[in-house]
Amino acid sequence: MIVTLTANPALDRTIALDAPLAPGEVQSASSVQEDAAGKGVNVARVLGAFGAEALAVLPVADDDPYRRLLPPELPVRTIAAPAAARVNLALTDAAGETTKINLAGAPLGAAVVDALVDAVVHAADGADWLALCGSLPADAPDDLYARIIAEVRRRAAAPPRIAVDATGAALAAVVSAADEIGPVDLVKPNEHELAQLVADIVPGSDRGALLAEVRGDAVGASARLARRIVPIAARTALVTLGGDGALLVDADGIWHAGIPAGVEVRSTVGAGDSSLAGYLLAELRGADAAERLRSAVRCGSATASLPGTRLATPADLPSGDIPVRPLV
C-alpha cells in the first residue's frame, strides 16, 4: 500500500493550442480537458493503473466539482474543506511546450489542517510508503510536511517510508528538520528545485549561481548539489532532469539515466508525478538502484509522450532501452 497526500488539490484545466503560444495574441484551441489533480492524486492514479494498491488523502468540499472528477476507481480518503479546490491552467502545443499558471488555493483553517494531519497518520499506519506531494494550502505553515512526518513516526504503530515531492519552503523545512524528525527516505526535486533547496538551507549560498550551474551542466551540477543533502537529510534523491533524464543519489552511489530513444514530448503535465510513481513501483518489487531509476524514467517519459493531462498506463511505456551509468 502506498498512501499519498495532496494537501492543496487542483482542478487541472488543460487547453491544447493549435500553434505555439504567442503572448499578447489571440489564438485558437483545439481542445480543453478538466481533471481532478494535484501531485499526490496523480501519483496514486499512476500507481493504480499499474496494479499497485494506493490511497489518496486530500481535503475537498462536499459540493466541489472537483469531487465529481475524481476517477471512480481511485481509493480516496477526504477531509471536508471550506472552499472549492483551486484551478491550475496548462497551455500545451503540438511541439510539446507547456505553459502552466498555478493558483494558490483557498485557506483551509487550522481545524481542517489538524484533521488532515490525523487522517494521514491513520491512513499511513502499516503502509509501505507515504508520499507527501505538492504545494501547501495558503494558510498552512511551511513546516506542515515536517510536522506530518514527525506525527506519523511518533504515532503510527508501523510507520511507512516517506517520500517528499515538494518545492520551496515546504521542502526546505523537511530537510532542515532532519536532526529532529530524522531523514526522509526519498526526495524528488527537479534540477531547479534542487538548486533552490540548497540555496535555502546552506548559509551563504548564491541562488542565482546555483541555478546557472544546473542550467549549464544539469547532470554534474545536480549530482554535486544532491550530495549536500544525501544521505544526511534524505536517504535517497531522485532528481528529474527533463530531456537530460534523471539522477538517483543514495549513500552507495550516484546513477544517471538518459531518456528512451524515440520519445516525442507532447505534454509535461504529470511527468514528474509519474516518475515518482515509477520509482515506487520498482521499489515495491525490490529492484536495485539502477532498475528503480529506469522505472522512474520510463513512467515519466510515457506520460510526457501523451497529450494534455493523460497519465501513463502500462500500454504507454516506451520500449526503448534506458541506459544507466554510475557517476564517480
Rank of each mutant, 00 (worst) to 15 (best):
Y145R: 02
P203T: 10
A127C: 08
A81F: 06
L248G: 12
L241I: 00
A146W: 05
G24E: 13
D252S: 14
R147P: 04
A19L: 14
A277K: 10
D217T: 01
R292L: 06
A315I: 05
S319F: 00
P307Y: 10
R310P: 00
A282Y: 11
L276H: 07
A22D: 15
D142Q: 15
A29R: 07
I259G: 04
I15K: 01
P159V: 10
A199G: 11
A94C: 00
A282W: 09
A251Q: 13
R154C: 12
L116D: 02
A221E: 13
G245H: 08
R155G: 00
A237L: 08
E53K: 14
L136H: 03
E191L: 13
E291F: 01
A170K: 02
D93W: 03
V26I: 13
I181K: 12
V113Q: 15
I322V: 15
L132A: 10
L69G: 07
P72W: 06
P75C: 08
P23M: 08
A218G: 00
T313W: 03
V174L: 08
I259P: 04
G109M: 03
E291M: 02
A287C: 11
G208C: 06
A221D: 11
T6V: 03
A29V: 09
S295W: 13
G258M: 10
A290P: 07
V328G: 15
A111E: 14
A257W: 13
V76P: 05
A261V: 11
L281I: 07
D12T: 01
A81D: 03
D206V: 06
A223E: 11
L116Y: 02
N190P: 06
R207W: 01
S135D: 04
P23N: 07
V219A: 06
R147S: 12
V112K: 04
L130R: 08
E291A: 09
G126T: 11
L171H: 09
C133T: 00
G286M: 09
D179E: 15
R155F: 05
T236M: 13
L276N: 07
A37W: 01
T4G: 09
A61L: 08
A233I: 05
A158I: 04
L248T: 11
V87M: 01
L247C: 08
G220N: 05
P71F: 03
V269M: 05
G126Y: 13
F50A: 02
A95P: 00
A173M: 10
A61S: 06
R68L: 11
D288S: 03
A22I: 04
A83S: 14
D165N: 13
D244E: 15
V43A: 03
A146Y: 05
S31C: 02
I232D: 15
L210A: 04
D244T: 04
G242P: 02
P326F: 01
P231I: 10
G216I: 02
A22S: 15
D288E: 14
P260Y: 10
A106Y: 07
A52W: 06
D118S: 13
I79D: 05
D64S: 01
P189H: 07
A90D: 11
